[in-house]
Structures are given as structure tokens and as C-alpha cells.
Simulated assay, not measured.
Amino acid sequence: MFIKNYLFFILLTLLLVGCTSEDTNELKQEVKRLTVENTQLKDSKNKLETEVENFKEANTGLENEINTLKDLIEEYEDVSFNVDFNIYDEGFYIEPVLMFREDLTLEQTKNIMGKPNNVRSYIEEAHCGCEETEVNYDNASFTFQDELIKWMTLKDETFVTQRGIKVGSTKEQVIDSYGENFYPIEDGSNHEDNSINYGEKTGIRFSFAENVVSEITIWYMYE
């Protein structure tokens, strides 16, 4: 509206006072410039309106994703880890990688952990007559049976179970995560003083020093 009034004022001035040819050309150029600017402003306005609409749509999509994640978190928190314990199905973190039993080969262990302090291979005569390999580090040791992980002992906070337990966790945190169904030893008692054991032929043991986890042992039995 302002531009239209301005143009009308210019034309009226030309009619009333008259202009030289040079003045008229200058005024025409000014009118042309203002017309171009007006078109550019309209284009900018339309572009901004489009960006605002796109932002609103993106924001709505983000809110939906956040709500979906909240629902998943609530479902996860409702799961009771104390039911149907099976170490076969659980993973563990060798930070920051989540590993499962079938993932952890001898070569994969070396790739993640680096060069071991020592490696020892032998034939396990007592049970399977198969080849076993021990790989030892300062903070962990692993035993493989024909390339399958059989036994591991974890000694620092680098290693975390899938339920969030690591060296430094309290006994209370272990029981909260794994339940009170400790594995009984032959005399019928529980390893309550120095360790908590879950599972039987395949299982997990948490050893304690002053009620704090000092070592985690996981073992697997293959038929």
C-alpha cells in the first residue's frame, strides 16, 4: 500500500509541476527499482511462510518420536529381569561395544582388547577332549573351547553386564538386577559372603570385596 501511494505521489508531482526529460527518466528508474524490490519482498515473505510451515511439521514429527521413545522406556522399565534368567541370551559390554556369546571369538577378543599378556592352548582331557585356549590380560582373562567362549573373568569397570553391573557396583545393585535366586553350592548354602552366583552349568558369578563387586565371572557349558 505504501509503495502504491508513493508511486501515485510521483505521478501527481509530474502532472503538477512538470519535469524535464532527464528527471522523467530518473523517476522511471526509481519506479522500476521499487517495483523490483516489492517483488523481492513478496518472494521473501512467501519463502519465510513456507519455512515456518516446514518447521511446524518437523517439530510435530519430533514430538511424536519423543513420545514413542518415552513409551519404549516405560516398557523397558516394566520388564522384570528376575524372571527366566539365562546367561545364554544376555550380552555384555566391552566398552563401548555390546557383545553376545556368539560374537566373542578369539580373534574378536584380540581385536577389541589388543595384544594379550600371554596365550596358552591345550587339550581339555577331562570332559570334551577338545582344544581350549586361554587368553590373559591385566584386567581380564578368556577361555575358548574350539573358538567358542567358555569362560571369562572380568576385573575392572571397562566391562559391564547387559543389566548394568560392573566392578564397583554394590551387592544391593546386583541383587536388584539379578534377583535373590542365588546358585546353591553342594552344602546347600549360598555364596553370600564373598560371591553371588546365578545359573548352573552356564552362569554368572559376582565376587565382592566389602560388599562391592571386585570381579565378574561368566561361564558357558556346551553339549
Rank of each mutant, 00 (worst) to 15 (best):
K155A: 03
T24N: 05
F8T: 13
I87V: 15
Y183L: 15
Q173H: 10
V52C: 06
T105N: 04
D78Y: 05
K166Q: 12
D138A: 13
P116R: 09
P116C: 02
E200F: 15
S141Y: 08
S177F: 03
D176P: 06
V174P: 09
A209H: 08
E49G: 00
Y183E: 15
A209D: 11
E22P: 08
L98C: 00
L106M: 09
E63K: 15
F208V: 05
E74M: 11
V119Y: 06
V36R: 08
L27K: 07
W219I: 03
N64S: 14
S169V: 04
T109R: 08
G168P: 11
T217F: 02
R101V: 10
G168E: 06
F182G: 08
K47P: 02
L41C: 05
A140G: 06
E95N: 14
V31E: 10
T153N: 12
V83F: 00
Y137F: 13
D156T: 06
G18L: 03
Y178N: 05
K28Y: 07
E107A: 05
L12H: 08
E132K: 15
N82H: 08
E65C: 01
Y6T: 11
L62D: 04
A140W: 03
N118L: 13
F81S: 12
T35A: 12
Q108C: 00
N46K: 13
E186N: 15
T158N: 06
V52P: 01
T202K: 01
Y76H: 07
I94D: 04
L27T: 01
W219Y: 11
N67K: 14
C19E: 12
M221I: 01
E57N: 12
D103Q: 11
A140C: 03
Y178H: 00
Q173N: 11
N5V: 08
D71C: 01
S21P: 02
D89I: 01
K150P: 02
F206D: 02
D146S: 09
G168R: 10
Y76A: 13
K171C: 03
A209Y: 09
L69E: 06
I175E: 06
F2A: 12
G61R: 06
T39V: 12
E51K: 07
E200W: 13
F100Q: 10
V36L: 10
K4C: 03
F142P: 01
E134T: 09
